[in-house]
Design a protein around this nucleic acid. Sequence first.
DNA 1: GGAACGACTTTACCTATGTTAACGGTTTGC
DNA 2: GCAAACCGTTAACATAGGTAAAGTCGTTCC
Lengths: 244, 244
Amino acid sequence: MNRSAQVLATKLRTLSSLSAGDLELIDRVIPPASHYEARRDLIREGEVPQYVMLVVQGFACRYKTLRDGKRHLVALLLPGDCGDLHAPLLDHMDHGIATHTACLIAKIPREGVLDMLESPALEKALRRSTLVDEAILREWLLNIGQRRSEERLAHLLCELHHRLRAIGMAGEAGYDLPLTQAELGEIAGLSTVHVNRVVKELRRRELVYLRRGRVEIPDPRRLAWLCGFNANYLHQLAEAGTFS
Amino acid sequence: MNRSAQVLATKLRTLSSLSAGDLELIDRVIPPASHYEARRDLIREGEVPQYVMLVVQGFACRYKTLRDGKRHLVALLLPGDCGDLHAPLLDHMDHGIATHTACLIAKIPREGVLDMLESPALEKALRRSTLVDEAILREWLLNIGQRRSEERLAHLLCELHHRLRAIGMAGEAGYDLPLTQAELGEIAGLSTVHVNRVVKELRRRELVYLRRGRVEIPDPRRLAWLCGFNANYLHQLAEAGTFS
DNA sequence: GGAACGACTTTACCTATGTTAACGGTTTGC
DNA sequence: GCAAACCGTTAACATAGGTAAAGTCGTTCC
């Protein structure tokens, strides 16, 4: 099974169980990935989407830009995540997608997507995946709209912990996070300086140690409690390696 | 054609053109609506979705609640809007849906949705509709994350103007908006007091007159300019009665 | 017609967060 | 091996927006 297919399969398995046939189908349909450097646009706002992008390795993001150049990340795409299945239905993108770190990206042609949707189990997994993407958007909206900076960052770190654990990219108490503090700010709607203040405070309270692309969370449940994190909205299957 | 079907057809026509056959199909599939009073839960967080809700009349909303009771509206459902097509794929709701004003709501059974998805034109319209819902979520995230209170409210009012115009519920320069200032705050992530400050300022600058459930916008383009509003993300068909 | 209620207003005060600017440490490129 | 760039850190200061409380106005209900 090629690498791209494997990554997608891992992700989809966190949402629905797949048969051997499904795996073969994925393998047949997913093209090999190509390499992109960090901070490259994969598609810009206003352009016409042709493929469904699948992140095979690295972190990518969806972003929107304001007139004054301020940018806001509206989604993080982790390995196994992909763009909207039906994006090609729209005439133009209302946001951009860019790599964050260096990435491997597979471009799935529209027919490939349609083939996968033929399998009931795959259809279920793919549709659940888009529902979860939407649920994450809602949670981010709540996060920015109602929580104060400390809970806000904590919540984001909890979410990433869960999502990365589900795909085997995080341990019990930490994970690699290739995001600068400025970038965390672009997600959380905070200035770099303030992100730094919060990170410092979280460290002082021994809740999170964040440094050089690595996050350590000595007591995940304590952190989750602090920010009211509840993983329900990720709709992960119970087996998918989450801690309760 | 029954009322519920008509409202849905109006909405879907803003996204894709429909044939006579499509209209008949809608008419056959959409059940009559029932009446709900204002501020009633249609479905609560944690419950299992059974139907796809269609708002026929009135305003409804999606909301999420925090431990401390603070609520945040994560979507406004206007007449013709409906819940996620595939929501029944999820085990439980990660947010609630409630009426805002008194509403007429039609509950579309799952098979009805599947029937509609059989028609290519309807499928296109319905899928575009869910893509637009997601696009609105992203725009709201940007709105709250990056814009200051004045632009933020202005942007929200512009969006509602466009959405309501598309379904024939707004004129060139105004519309009825049955939301209190407190509720606008729950959408924009602002306190009631601050919403009031902003409303006052917008009035002083002759940009928006907001009073008793009615919004008057003397110069929509000036308002749109102020807050950088660009309707692209609504992906409305050109004919759908939007002002340029 | 008066009481009760809800929405809207305003004031005074407080604080979370933004802004600007500067400095030190690491990594990267030549 | 040095310079440049980038990132993280901190300080001083500015301000947008939150909170609490009270008053006004219009509507609804008896």
